[in-house]
Nucleic acid binder design. Structure first.
Length: 348
DNA sequence: GATGCGTGGGG
DNA sequence: TCCCCAAGCAT
């Protein structure tokens, strides 16, 4: 049955695989880049970023030499920005400690920044033909359904169960195809909802299909808690310059730029905004207050109001991490979507 | 081991 | 509108 599973799967994949740039190559740099971009990200969303990065940084050497803000700016809009920082750090260690060559084993790859168990297995199999199984959201789903495994996949220890199952199934001489095929099947046929069992090469022996349990598998118990935050952005202008600030660690959007900020856990009236602003600063007028803008993150719900200000005092900015940037400079800073959208709407 | 980290799309 | 989730990782 193991052999039948792998053969059916790989045969199906050979007829249905998509034509994607990182599959034309065995260049570890390109495979690595594509895998980092595709972490928690759909192909359609990641593809343009892959192309931008390959154009700007054809090899790991150009990427390693680039300034961090430039890398962050190129990543802008893709989310999970720690991926971009780790990508850059990893590129630097490949050049400085590995002589520009990626290591070719699962264990060595795991040591690199931003490379975890999934990505190490992906690079080891796709670039170096190692028989290490990838275990991602797709693999959890396909195997849980096919074998009727009801372990809770939100528990970290469950990873080992699925890793071992996949290790039993993976053919030593076709590891890359097997891994790709399993993920592709999960992404296109064995989807979370509206699964297409009638097109599935594995449907005959699939336990979930036989027992009509597709929508119950895989089991995932943990739910994330949504936090609500209210952001009042203070827009300081000086001539044609705009005051912006780089966001720090232990919060969202680390390394990206936004504006001076007053934050609360509840909405404020205009009067309350005025009061709070004039408590921090003095002689300040509120020039314009935007409608609240909603911005949703995976685990937070933000409501942002943009407040344009004017002060009669000079050097209003008490916060020294705030700096004035020209329009040209602002354009080149890495910014979260929320800020980018605001600037676009104001045609700044 | 639990939690935090973006954005966009589908049902 | 809401929920789920997508080729995970670091801490």
């Amino acid at each position: 049955m193991n052999q039948s599973f792998s053969n059916l799967l790989i045969n199906w994949y050979n007829q249905h695989q998509r034509d994607l740039p990182w599959r034309d190559t065995s260049d570890p740099y390109r495979i690595w880049l594509s895998e980092i971009i595709l972490q928690q990200t759909r192909v359609d969303q990641g593809l343009p970023y892959y192309n931008k990065f390959i154009n700007q940084y054809p090899s790991v050497h150009e990427l390693a030499k680039a300034p961090e803000d430039e890398v962050m700016r190129l990543w802008q809009g893709l989310g999970y920005y720690s991926r971009a920082r780790n990508l850059h750090e990893c590129a630097k260690s490949i050049v400085n400690q590995y002589d520009g060559e990626f290591p070719d084993t699962y264990e060595e790859l795991l040591k690199l920044k931003g490379i975890g168990k999934y990505t190490a297995a992906a690079i080891a199999s796709f670039a170096f033909d190692r028989a290490v199984p990838v275990v991602d959201g797709n693999v959890f789903r396909v195997l849980a359904r096919y074998l009727d495994i009801s372990d809770d996949i939100s528990q970290p220890k469950t990873f080992k169960t699925f890793f071992n199952v996949a290790k039993q199934l993976i053919p030593e001489n076709q590891a890359a195809s097997f891994n790709q095929a399993l993920m592709e099947l999960g992404a296109t046929i064995c989807t979370p909802r509206k699964f297409k069992c009638e097109n599935c090469p594995l449907s005959l022996d699939c336990q979930a299909r036989i027992h009509h349990k597709q929508s119950e598998l895989p089991v995932k118990k943990k739910k994330i808690k949504i936090r609500h935050r209210f952001l009042y952005y203070l827009i300081w202008k000086e001539g044609d310059k705009l005051a912006m600030k780089k966001r720090g660690p232990n919060d969202i959007w680390q390394g990206l730029f936004d504006f001076d900020l007053i934050e609360t856990n509840h909405p404020l009236t205009i009067e309350e905004i005025y009061e709070k602003v004039n408590k921090q600063y003095s002689n300040v007028e509120l020039v314009e207050i935007s409608e609240p803008v909603k911005h949703i993150l995976s685990h937070q719900r933000l409501q942002a109001v943009f407040v344009e200000l004017q002060s009669k005092n000079e050097n209003v900015l008490s916060d020294h991490s705030l700096k004035y940037f020209t329009k040209q400079e602002v354009e080149e800073l890495p910014k979260p979507r929320l800020i980018e959208n605001y600037l676009t709407s104001k045609d700044f």
